[in-house]
Design a protein around this nucleic acid. Structure first.
Length: 265
DNA sequence: TTAAGTGTTGCTCT
DNA sequence: AAGAGCAACACTTA
């Protein structure tokens, strides 16, 4: 689930429910969720303090602490951030819980591939993680996209998913972006024309903005997407929303990609 | 029941 | 050294 739009939803949730309120307790239910930090060091660093600002870079969420420094979160394949009110029922698979006077914020993660950590400042964190520019940052323009895929022999789909080239695009949304841009995901990145890259850039911004606006990751999210989106058809037997033909599955590096062989070339 | 599949990343091998 | 393949992980679905 957690690609850029999903993480942006988590960020907004944290900003709405967890900012400028005392964090009364931090419960590390699974030590692996804060690895390589010790649960104690992580919890003690945050307990009694407040989050005062949030940021997102690609698929990473960061929250600034009132006395300086930031908490970082990455959601792996199945992580999420949920707010639970005073009488609410917590989700399954909670690995970290932040307790406030009214309710709690839970980091849930069935597959345990997500991580939380601590860092001094955002810029050094981005450098350490080797992250490219955030896909929604205004500075990620056509020049930056050209730079990201320049000379790359790999497929445009793989290049877009490379977080060191551009941060935030994953397996699902790369399919949608390339479908909207009418580009075959298997094409070599370096062989795309300027006009094609321009279409891709426009669709990165558009697809992500639409996904965020429609509540990425929420229940019935797929039904709330425009009819022109291939995302709900991203399955066996799916039909291209543009031409009605069957969507095709291809595999690369253990990942599944879907596309319309008639509409994308 | 068992096996395959899964929205991410990082390590290994070439 | 870029790129491909697979492991990590644990649950859900076929």
């Amino acid at each position: 689930m957690p690609e850029l739009p999903d993480v942006e939803i988590f960020r907004r949730r944290l900003a709405a429910k967890g900012l400028k309120r005392a964090i009364r307790g931090v419960s590390v239910r699974d030590p692996r969720a804060v690895r390589p930090l010790s649960p104690r060091r992580f919890a003690e660093h945050i307990r009694g303090r407040k989050f005062v600002a949030t940021r997102r870079h690609g698929k990473h969420l960061l929250a600034r602490l009132d006395k300086g420094g930031w908490m970082t979160m990455h959601f792996g394949m199945t992580g999420s951030l949920e707010f639970v009110g005073p009488k609410g029922k917590p989700p399954r698979f909670v690995r970290l819980a932040f307790d406030f006077a009214r309710g709690q914020i839970d980091f849930a993660d069935p597959r345990r591939l997500g991580r939380a950590g601590l860092t001094g400042d955002v810029e050094s964190f981005i450098a350490k993680e080797r992250l490219g520019p955030d896909a929604l940052a205004p500075s990620f323009n056509l020049t930056a996209l050209k730079q990201a895929v320049a000379g790359r022999k790999t497929s445009i789909k793989a290049a877009l998913m490379d977080q060191s080239a551009v941060a935030g695009i994953g397996n699902i949304y790369s399919d949608e972006i390339l479908f909207q841009a009418r580009i075959d995901p298997r094409r070599q990145a370096k062989k795309l024309s300027g006009a094609e890259l321009s279409r891709i850039l426009r669709q990165i911004k558009r697809v992500f903005k639409i996904a965020i606006a429609r509540g990425a990751g929420s229940e019935h999210f797929f039904e709330r997407l425009p009819r022109s989106f291939i995302l709900p058809q991203r399955k066996k037997g799916g039909k291209c929303p543009s031409c009605g033909g069957p969507v095709r599955l291809f595999k690369s590096g253990g990942r599944s990609g879907y596309y319309c062989p008639r509409c994308q070339s």
